[in-house]
Design a protein around this nucleic acid. Structure first.
Lengths: 209, 209
DNA sequence: CAGATTGGATAGCTCCACTATCCGAAACAG
DNA sequence: CTGTTTCGGATAGTGGAGCTATCCAATCTG
């Protein structure tokens, strides 16, 4: 297929496809002559993934480029597939004071220790959690920490499901793509489900007014 | 306090504070003369909340304005406090075909029915979930649906914790602010904890390589 | 062969979240 | 009281992100 068909198939404007090519989000087509190229189903698929990461995942163009680079790497050991998937995925960050950071880390350790989790305070995930906890305190809503244990519990459960799902993927296809997709869209799914669960729990607790 | 001190106290540049005032994110100070004003601790607090919603919550200026408007409304019944909090909070949306939408809704109903959840297909949360499910299918990763039940379970658990926490807030102060803060920062917290849980689960499953 | 389409390069657009400058009035230091 | 700062308010400008539009010569299509 050529540019126009790729555009029709994927629902992305021609000019936008060209832009994505320039930005390295879409590999070049197979050349048929010095200034003509042909595309195939892999390009359609990649384009759909790019749009999904941008729209649902809320990633920036640069984030998408990093994530795709991870996907296109030859698969590493099963153990760090999720690590590779996480590498390049953004988490909200903030600067907070060292005292605050220490305070938050202690709280986090308090609830993860009993589960035997090993925290490396330098890891992006821990830093992001610490940032959120500090922010919550800064706006005067420390009470949220009371629920931290339940949050950790919920995160543990979905993570187990995620690991199981990824392990079930045959290693023939791109497990890494599965891990990335699962991570990004899993976030969006979890957030939306939480909203729905709020409504439901509120209905159960306070009746149908 | 006056502008300079408000700026120092909150860590936000004077020009930015003026911008937030223009955008309606910060109420005007108390006038002491036709062109002078005085600010107090409520302004510092509000400013910190605005920054937190922007940076951690990833909200736009317009979203923050909507959320603050909800917070400043006189409190309604306990039942729909979370509804008010949700109103104005964004969820990723996409356009998908009606067939896809129907397919996703059936899957969602399949796992929520046994919990006795009532879905209104028009609600933002349901629409967002449907969008994500359709997107997951569009990029060829339907296997994620196998975990949907576990996700719903996790969402239900955190929602219960959230409701409990909000109910524990005395009605004297702004419960609505608590609900908004809990919703927005709870999202960020859950997402970051999931990343950490992935690492931990991967370590347990595949050993320490 | 005529007209449309292609890949590629470049310039421009809109939106967003600030940021900088200017002004005349008020505050403060001496 | 005087001279310097700081104030609020208004207006214009900045830089980045994510496209979008235009132009070109080469190539494909009927």
């Amino acid at each position: 297929m050529r540019m126009a068909e790729l555009s029709r198939e994927s629902g992305v404007a021609v000019a936008t496809i060209k832009y994505y090519q320039r930005e390295g989000l879409l590999p070049p087509g197979e050349r048929t002559s010095p200034n003509q190229a042909r595309y195939d189903a892999t390009h359609v698929r990649r384009l759909r993934l790019v749009r999904a990461l941008l729209e649902v995942g809320g990633l920036s163009i640069a984030d998408v480029r990093d994530v795709l680079a991870a996907i296109d790497e030859p698969a590493t050991s099963t153990h760090d597939i999720l690590g590779v998937a996480q590498h390049g995925l953004p988490l909200a960050r903030r600067d907070v004071s060292d005292e605050d950071r220490k305070w938050a880390l202690e709280h986090l350790e308090a609830v993860t220790a009993e589960r035997g989790w090993q925290l490396s305070p330098e890891s992006p995930a821990v830093e992001a959690i610490v940032d959120v906890l500090c922010t919550v305190r800064a706006v005067g809503h420390e009470w949220m920490l009371d629920s931290l244990d339940r949050y950790v519990d919920a995160a543990e459960r979905v993570a187990e499901a995620d690991l199981g799902a990824v392990a079930r993927l045959g290693s023939t296809e791109s497990i890494v793509e599965g891990a990335v997709v699962g991570t990004v869209f899993g976030d969006a799914l979890l957030v939306a489900l939480r909203r729905l669960a709020h409504k439901q729990a509120s209905r159960e607790r306070f009746g149908d007014a």
